[in-house]
Design a protein around this nucleic acid. Structure first.
Lengths: 168, 168
DNA sequence: CTCGAAGAATTCGACATCGAAATATTAGCA
DNA sequence: TGCTAATATTTCGATGTCGAATTCTTCGAG
């Protein structure tokens, strides 16, 4: 590699510049680009961390979705939450069930539906992964004061509150 | 669906609560979770928008990476930038080249390497997509003042500056 | 009550992606 | 120079994902 590998801030500036040059608005692109590259980097770390647990990132998404919901979900709901086709979920659940991380149970009131729930092992895996990743995440945010973190979270949450209204 | 579909802020709160319950730190999880869900939603919108241009999101990633770099890149670099295995890049580039969006050219000084560049059509497609998506992105940020957008961007950029130092 | 439409999960064939191996070229060193 | 290690791309077999079709159940109009 003749040219040095660019740093994250350099990549960020390049990206914003390119988007602005192509007709995007600067204040918008600075935010959007930063969110995208931050998320991308985090995903990479998670993938590595999950590899240690012998879990594909899509499988983790299922476990996390169930943990967040705190109650059983149907395969369709899981497919929706994890951004995957319902047909793909079937196989994923097969594998996760085989490993004993989730359980399928028929819905007594509606026999077309199936409920998927985390097993005890599933919960333990979730907790283990979270505690591990929290360390990395704290490192990422180490340059922000507690007050700044709160402000950052607040601003992001304002944006999130807008998400549902847009769909159109 | 018996239960109403949860809104984005509800999902966000649930996620933070689950992560904190599993041992994560709150100020960290609020930020990380918000970044993740925002990024996910944006990806969904991009995927839809790109479908109109008959472009898979991975193909877009290649076009965007080349546009941001502003110069030709090798398949390996593109694979790295777009988070994909080098072997997968081969086929993607084949397809993009077939559509006339990129061009491959051998590197005269090192015959192991190949340079990939955007064609004129590739640049036009990039510009078209950016102008289209900027509209959606502006909508997402509409609840933030110009000053708040600047502050949000600044905080995110502080975090990004830290990214490279962590790899360990 | 019956029949057709709608909804949910699964199966199936086609295609994209992955990791490992293969190929070709360059770089380093005795 | 000659030989080995390293680098870059591509090929290949296995696996995951997608969209369409399938099966089964429930809902609703007449």
């Amino acid at each position: 590699m003749a040219t040095r590998k660019p740093t994250a801030p350099e990549l960020h500036r390049q990206a914003v510049a390119a988007y602005v040059a192509a007709g995007g608005e600067e204040s918008v692109q600075r935010v959007i680009t930063a969110v995208a590259s931050l998320s991308k980097k985090l995903d990479q770390w998670y993938a590595r961390q999950l590899a240690d647990l012998d879990l594909a990132s899509g499988e983790w998404a299922v476990v996390a979705a169930l943990a967040k919901a705190g109650e059983p979900l149907t395969p369709s709901q899981l497919a929706d939450l994890t951004n995957v086709a319902p047909s793909s979920m079937t196989h994923r659940l097969d594998k996760l069930a085989e490993r004993g991380l989730v359980e399928r149970a028929p819905d007594a009131t509606n026999r077309t539906r199936v409920f998927v729930a985390l097993t005890e092992d599933g919960w333990q895996l979730f907790s283990l992964a979270i505690r591990g990743s929290d360390v990395v995440e704290s490192d990422v945010l180490q340059d922000l004061s507690e007050k700044e973190r709160g402000e950052l979270a607040r601003l992001l949450e304002v944006v999130i509150a807008r998400l549902d209204d847009i769909e159109a």
